[in-house]
Write a protein that binds this DNA or RNA. Structure first.
Length: 268
DNA sequence: AAGGACGCCAACCGCAGCCGT
DNA sequence: TACGGCTGCGGTTGGCGTCCT
């Protein structure tokens, strides 16, 4: 295979390049050819790579295959709870900037995060009968999903065998988190505390970017402890309660046994 | 057992920005 | 400055596997 990469007549192939560009799934042989080419010549210059490696693919296709599949530091497996939390947080800040979000999750690709968002998160929005970019959905994410996600991570870190001990008590003490029209601004302190410090670099680990314990502490120390449902009209309050119930019901599908298993493995 | 519905994910497409000539 | 090639990004699609009836 190595000789196939090195000895291919690049100039000859250039003359044939438009004859039959291959599309569709990559074969194992193509993977080996591309991986060996990159190992020798490095990343970049993908059109040249496609030609000189003898791959009947476009440069774009080669780049995508390398970045999303062949790269040695690709992280396989389910999105973990911490990663889910970070994705939710970063998306609330940056929107559909998948590559930027992916930079904060080592080993994850923008494609993977994009797929995760579309298949999991947008599904939740659909179940809540609201648009994924709507204020309602952002509210439910910020006030229900993210706190509960943090709670689950905390619970897992406390007791790997007990995943459900504390959120109900947390809710009992924090049923005062209705949305307000001003509360969902991107510079809202409620969002800010969840974000990595601006001075931190993308090379820092996931764990250092999101201090989960301090996050929960800050969240629980929010000054507004009164039942703010009373500040809203009956219709608005009913809508919020309905949305919260729906979110609670649909939330469980966001995490699965694999995530719990992963967390447990981290704690062993 | 069969087939239709659904979810997931790899891969493609179009576009924009950058850079060298 | 204009142009063409390359790269990267976000949106979309199609195929495959699983689930459900």
């Amino acid at each position: 295979m190595d000789t196939q990469v090195r000895n291919h007549d690049c100039a000859t192939y250039q003359n044939e390049e438009n004859i039959d560009i291959k599309k569709g799934p990559w074969t194992a042989e193509e993977d080996v050819i591309l991986a060996e080419y990159v190992a020798i010549h490095g990343e970049g210059r993908w059109n040249t790579a496609a030609r000189c490696a003898g791959l009947k693919r476009t440069g774009k296709s080669c780049r995508l295959r390398w970045l999303n599949y062949l790269r040695p530091d690709i992280r396989r497996g389910n999105i973990t709870l911490q990663e889910q939390l970070l994705i939710l947080e970063l998306h609330s800040r940056w929107g559909n900037r998948w590559s930027k979000i992916a930079q904060q999750l080592p080993g994850r690709t923008d494609n993977e995060i994009k797929n995760y968002w579309r298949t999991r998160v947008q599904k939740q929005a659909k179940q809540l009968k609201c648009d994924v970019n709507s204020k309602q959905f952002r509210d439910s994410m910020r006030h229900i999903w993210i706190p509960r996600l943090i709670e689950r991570i905390q619970a897992a870190s406390r007791s790997p065998t007990d995943q459900s001990t504390t959120y109900s008590s947390y809710k009992d003490n924090h049923n005062d988190i209705p949305p307000s029209s001003e509360a969902v601004q991107m510079n809202d302190p409620m969002i800010e505390w969840m974000m990595p410090e601006p001075s931190r670099t993308s090379s820092e680990s996931l764990e250092t970017q999101v201090s989960l314990v301090s996050s929960v502490t800050k969240y629980q120390n929010q000054p507004n402890k009164q039942n703010l449902y009373g500040l809203y009209s009956e219709e608005e309050s009913n809508r919020w309660v309905e949305m919260e119930t729906l979110a609670e019901e649909s939330l469980d599908s966001l995490w699965n046994q694999e995530n719990i298993w992963f967390l447990q493995q981290q704690l062993i």
